[in-house]
Design a protein around this nucleic acid. Structure first.
Lengths: 196, 196
DNA sequence: GTCTATAACGGGATAGAC
DNA sequence: GTCTATCCCGTTATAGAC
């Protein structure tokens, strides 16, 4: 909220979450941010620049949310930490929901816009490591490779469930339930494959 | 190839797979199909109509591929049937790859275009039932609810992996490997939860 | 059913002042 | 850094002939 540049990025995340990347209009974005379209181009050069910086912005914001989730005074056990990290989007915080929707949109856009791929790959790798770390707390005896594979499956599953939920294929509570079960299934798998 | 209408739909699937929904231009589509833009609008009314009918078209085409996969003379065991159904996109058939990419694009579009949701939901439900049927062959003693949940998780995971692979986050062979392991993990889970 | 030609418009991007 | 005003191009969609 301090500088205009940040206000534009916040507005971009909101607008992409509301209209999608295809529905993003520079003018609507500018109005939403309370600035002129010219200023948007001054800060971000062109449409591709807007998308790239917005992806960086929501990545940064998501990191803060997952490191300091709201409403957690008591220490949690590893399984709860994992569930919270993966089911973050079911919190009521608007920014969190925006992040989920915008992330899905920008990831889908990256298929046809190579500019976004690098940022996306870096952010994804960091996220998967984060989840692998939480899994390690829950299953310290599992092999590193199995922990990494479980983290990648849970991440991809979460994204797939988000996409299905947002497109109306899956009901929100059902998506959440399926993800919760998947965590249990993966934890059971890691127990069965503990390192000797 | 027989009628022009079908040629347009085939061209639409190809073009969406190549350029995405956002990159779909009526004129490029018409050229690809070897017809005029006016004819496209004559058959499908408007842009939304093109998208909706293309979604129906690839759904229909995918059904045929999964019911009669190529290169399968010998009977397969249930586990192999499952792997083939879920990893269909790793076949070399161009139409199959087109279907996967276009499906992801159209599902993502459905988040902001309610017109697509009904077709999408129907197709998804049929697909999940198909996978649940294959799982039943492999684990006849598992409960119906657990079989359905596994089918939904594997479907969402496959779509999530596809999205990550297509956006360059995951290498193709790695995506395939993760899906193969997931099948094993779910089968083990269903064994552990067999109906008494 | 299918074409050619074109209307109509949305929206990305910039010039230039302050 | 920020605005107002505007250009101009690409794209959707249609009119009308065959």
């Amino acid at each position: 909220m301090t500088d205009r540049r940040t206000a534009i990025l916040e507005a971009a995340a909101r607008t992409i979450a509301r209209r999608g990347v295809r529905g993003l209009r520079t003018e609507e974005l500018a109005t939403e941010a309370g600035v002129s379209t010219a200023l948007v181009y001054y800060h971000f050069k062109d449409r591709a620049g807007i998308l790239r910086h917005t992806l960086e912005f929501i990545t940064h914001r998501a990191k803060q949310h997952s490191l300091a989730p709201q409403g957690t005074d008591d220490p949690l056990d590893p399984r709860e930490l994992l569930a919270m990290a993966l089911q973050l989007e079911f919190q009521d915080l608007p920014e969190v929901r925006e992040n989920t929707t915008a992330w899905g949109e920008l990831r889908a856009s990256a298929i046809f816009e190579p500019d976004l791929r690098e940022v996306l790959a870096t952010a994804s790798a960091a996220w998967v490591r984060h989840v692998a770390g939480l899994l390690t707390l829950a299953r310290p005896t599992a092999s590193t490779a199995e922990l990494a594979a479980s983290a990648e499956r849970l991440t991809a599953l979460r994204e797939g469930l988000d996409a299905r939920r947002l497109s109306g294929v899956l009901r929100p509570d059902h998506a959440r339930e399926l993800l919760g079960e998947a965590i249990e299934v993966e934890l059971a798998h890691l127990t069965a494959h503990a390192r000797p």
